[in-house]
Design a protein around this nucleic acid. Structure first.
Length: 281
DNA sequence: ACTAACCTGTAA
DNA sequence: TTACAGGTTAGT
């Protein structure tokens, strides 16, 4: 479900509420949402949440004692701060068969709910001040990282055969982009998703980096995109779906030239683009 | 470098 | 009943 702007929105919601709070309890309704563990969940109890960081679509909850929880929401994962909800909503969320974990802090409970169960937690006991992000093969963060035209140009030389769509979705190249924002970035840049990355010029790469920056900024400002499932930590929708130009609009008119937007499948993912405004090269 | 698989829910 | 969904990855 969530891409970088949605995960960043959740991070901003939660850091304001949970920084320096003590974790009192860590309970699981299903143990299979723990994808990896150096230690037991109970080892986190009594620890202080020092910070919440994000790299790409991963969230890292950093606790005292060098303990860390990595969270990935995949398609339908949600992190919901229970006190933000009405008492009826709180009750139904706690009883939901898709609520898999509850983190109880001194000021309230944080719930992990995931219909499809692709998402989950990884529990780390770090040594030497290393963050668990370093264990993942992730490129620079698309928002806070060193992403520019020169970097993309160097990367496209390493992966010349990838379709541009697949290239932008690859988290080892750039971390944080998903199906919505890649389509939006390619539309903004005037490049087709089915061109090969090897054909990108340095100028194209500079435009891609620029468009990425601009679109992510607006999307974060709008609190992310709620096309269907996404909700922030307060269980509320984002607003960026009102500003999407091509994603989810296959068969409708291009907002710039009026041509019919095409929808194709690349690497198993749907892509929508304008056959007039976007060029293959 | 592509596909099938992991899951469940919703819409066609 | 079938196709499809803001993601990733093991296997081919």
């Amino acid at each position: 479900m969530p891409e970088l702007p949605e995960v960043e929105t959740i991070r901003l919601n939660l850091i304001a509420i949970l920084k320096n709070q003590k974790l009192k309890g860590f309970s699981l309704n299903r143990s299979d949402i723990i994808k990896y563990a150096d230690i037991q969940p109970s080892a986190f109890e009594g620890c202080i949440l020092l910070d919440i960081k994000r790299h790409g679509k991963f969230l890292a909850f950093l606790f005292s004692g060098n303990l860390e929880i990595l969270v990935h929401l995949r398609m339908t994962g949600k992190l919901i701060w229970l006190p933000a909800l009405s008492s009826e909503e709180q009750e139904s969320l706690l009883e939901s068969r898709h609520t898999h974990a509850v983190l109880s802090f001194e000021n309230g409970k944080l719930v992990f709910n995931d219909v499809r169960r692709f998402g989950g937690f990884e529990l780390y006991q770090n040594s030497g001040g290393e963050s668990a992000f370093s264990r993942k093969k992730l490129g620079p963060d698309a928002w806070t990282g060193a992403l520019d035209g020169r970097y993309l140009f160097a990367q496209k030389k390493r992966h010349p055969g990838l379709y541009l769509k697949t290239f932008l979705l690859n988290q080892e190249i750039v971390a944080g982009l998903g199906n919505i924002y890649t389509d939006e970035i390619m539309f903004e840049t005037g490049l087709r998703p089915d061109m090969r990355a090897g054909r990108l010029s340095l100028k194209d790469c500079e435009r891609l980096a620029e468009a990425t920056r601009a679109i992510l900024e607006k999307a974060i400002e709008a609190g992310g995109t709620s096309f269907r499932d996404y909700r922030n930590a307060g269980n509320r929708r984002g607003q960026f779906q009102n500003f999407l130009r091509v994603y989810g609009r296959g068969g409708l008119a291009c907002p710039v030239c009026g041509a019919v937007l095409e929808k194709i499948t690349i690497g198993g993912r749907s892509s929508v683009f304008c056959p007039v405004c976007q060029k293959k090269k």
